[in-house]
Design a protein around this nucleic acid. Structure first.
Lengths: 369, 369
DNA sequence: CTTAAATATGGAAACGTTTCCATGAAGAGA
DNA sequence: TCTCTTCATGGAAACGTTTCCATATTTAAG
């Protein structure tokens, strides 16, 4: 990479001072037509472009905003980042993206570096908002920032789904469908405060509804042995008729595994996901899930940070907008039929009744919160 | 955001010169134990951290690499970026991400800015590699770079799926399954040289195989009227038995639309996708598709740029690695049953049982385009 | 034709680093 | 004790901008 021309080179070629070049190119002061001409010619000839680095040093603005998420391999975060990035770009900022892979060290280091690079602001999803080192760094340095998906601790702004309430809603839905014994499948349970919130909200509301406390199964990142784990899990928890998966991808994988175990979904096992990714609508049966709008969350978070940067009023959530809604789907069915039909409660191995319970397609209530 | 302490503040507080502070903190020269102590104390007290902006100006390295893709709402690009980002991060670089939304102006401007910000390198997917203004800027400035998904013009390095060959393979598969009349569904046909490559490769190979030239249907970004468009398309192209969609998401949406039109997949219509996203394995029927590994492509591209930056040998593709493979799936079925029955395999229009083939266009929406 | 005001222009400082170089101090060998 | 290294340290330049200020030139007004 040959080193590019600087403003000095231009000044030299145009036969003037650097100040003049700066003024002409930025339209920030007077200049004679002739001089303007010469400068422009020199710029053209040298193919000159301002160095943003020099500019940043002098103006102390970098035109860059940081964005920290666990992983954009997860479409939820990908959509979020996409939304925020668009907002930033149209406001003249570029986005420094860091994926932490749910690793707290990477998170801290990345945030430290972002601050050192003097980003104008940061949107971020941290592993654990209460303990995040990076977050306290941001706070100490008073960098404009907005959390994403993390429940906001004091003095922080956040755009997040109310995981606790949403998971409670799932419990209610299982209750409505007469399920009693359910399980919770969690990915990244240790490294994600969201997953834990969901479990908590689900468990408490299950108990509240008179159901048993849900069994917990932690699984590894996209483990190929999900089927085995699921089999073992179901064997250890006889009578389990429904599973709440901590995200949609996991829910879909679980449906697949259930099929491999010769279980009918939802006949033998109901499954509910979380996130509401688009694919969930395309599969058979469609996935019952908590629908969220990550893209919108991303744009709101982006707008929030931009407002902080230029000191305007922060955007607030419109009344009509809910952070989540329950989306019904074929993967969740009532347990009622079984008990009346053949009398056997959902034991393991579950009934392979070919007359599968049909999800009622007319019920397309969005069930807003 | 209060402005942070500088090296001068530290020097002042420690009672020494800035050079000493720099040496101590960077371990880049001698210092007495006492002095080291004082400097460290001052750093602690002031909560000092180097400004990367100042550093960048003096060293002319920014520790930043640019990444330009159409949109990470598309999981193919999301995975790619994820892969590249990880590689960069572990090499000590952060990633400036720009999503162009298939817009050539955004693309040019973004690249110009990236260059001005003095990124150490760029990985990018451009709208059209032959005409991309941004790409020629990069070339002129000799920025280390690597294309992604774009077929590489001369003097450029690229990691890309051979769209032309892959699409040809799909044509072969349709031929093996006795299909004669097929269609190609394209998203972003105008703004993506990949989509055009795929159509070309598909069309030529169809003809080569004695099939008819595939009908082309361009659809808008995630258009909700896909069902109507598909219905009209099928009506305009009677005898069409297979569809090649330019990516998996579109293929899945097409399956869904086909169902709404009361068409059985693959009974009435075979569908093949492109990309091989994971979800394709989880749906019923599973999606026949061209399987690719975007994540790997991203890491290779990342490694390539890193090698360029530090002047080491570029990574080459291992012999065993293919940019794509055909993945069989339930969405593609032979046309055999029908043809063997009545023996008129290759006649035109191809045999089709009208009772089975019939679908009910939704009158109400019929005229919508 | 003079003077005041407006217009053009360039020099230099500042932004926060690193690094070259010079200077001062200390230790070692005679 | 004297010189010769070696070690410690600070001053200053350089990186590429912008901007303040001073100066030189033009124009307008009297």
């Amino acid at each position: 990479m040959r080193q590019p021309a600087t403003i000095k080179d231009v000044a030299l070629k145009a036969g003037c001072g650097v100040a003049t070049v700066s003024r002409v190119l930025n339209n920030t002061g007077p200049a004679s037509a002739a001089m303007r001409q010469r400068v422009l010619a020199a710029v053209n000839e040298l193919d000159f472009q301002f160095s943003e680095v020099g500019r940043s040093l002098q103006s102390s603005r970098t035109g860059t905003i940081g964005c920290v998420v666990p992983s954009i391999a997860n479409p939820v975060y990908a959509d979020t980042v996409q939304g925020a990035q668009e907002i930033f770009l149209s406001a003249g900022f570029q986005t420094l993206l860091v994926c932490t892979n749910y690793n707290a060290d990477i998170e801290s280091n990345a945030i430290r570096t972002l601050i050192a690079k003097q980003v104008a602001g940061i949107v971020l999803t941290v592993s654990d908002a209460k303990t995040s080192e990076g977050l306290s760094l941001i706070e100490k340095r008073q960098v404009p920032h907005c959390l994403l998906f993390n429940a906001a601790p004091d003095n922080h702004v956040s755009w997040a789904v109310d995981d606790y309430a949403a998971a409670g809603r799932v419990a209610d839905k299982f209750a409505e469908n007469k399920h009693v014994h359910t399980g919770f499948l969690a990915l990244n349970f240790q490294s994600s405060d969201r997953a834990r919130q969901r479990y908590e909200g689900f468990a408490e509301r299950c108990v509240y509804n008179g159901m048993s406390k849900p069994a917990l199964l932690e699984v590894e990142e996209d483990s190929p042995e999900l089927t085995d784990l699921l089999g073992k899990f179901l064997r250890n928890n006889p009578g389990l008729s429904g599973i709440f998966a901590s995200n949609d991808l996991l829910a879909l994988a679980t449906i697949r595994s259930a099929r491999k175990l010769s279980l009918d979904v939802p006949g033998d096992l109901s499954i509910v996901g979380f996130d509401g990714i688009k694919i969930g609508l395309m599969v058979e049966p469609s996935l019952a899930t908590i629908a969220t709008d990550p893209r919108m969350l991303g744009t709101y978070a982006g707008d929030t940070v931009l407002s902080m940067i230029n000191g305007s009023a922060l955007p607030s959530m419109p009344d009509t907008y809910q952070t989540f809604s329950f989306r019904d789907g074929g993967s969740l069915a009532p347990l009622a039929a079984e008990s009346s039909d053949d009398g056997k409660a959902a034991t393991f191995p579950p009934s392979k009744d070919p007359t599968k319970r049909q999800f009622n397609p007319n019920r397309r209530d969005q069930d807003e919160v």
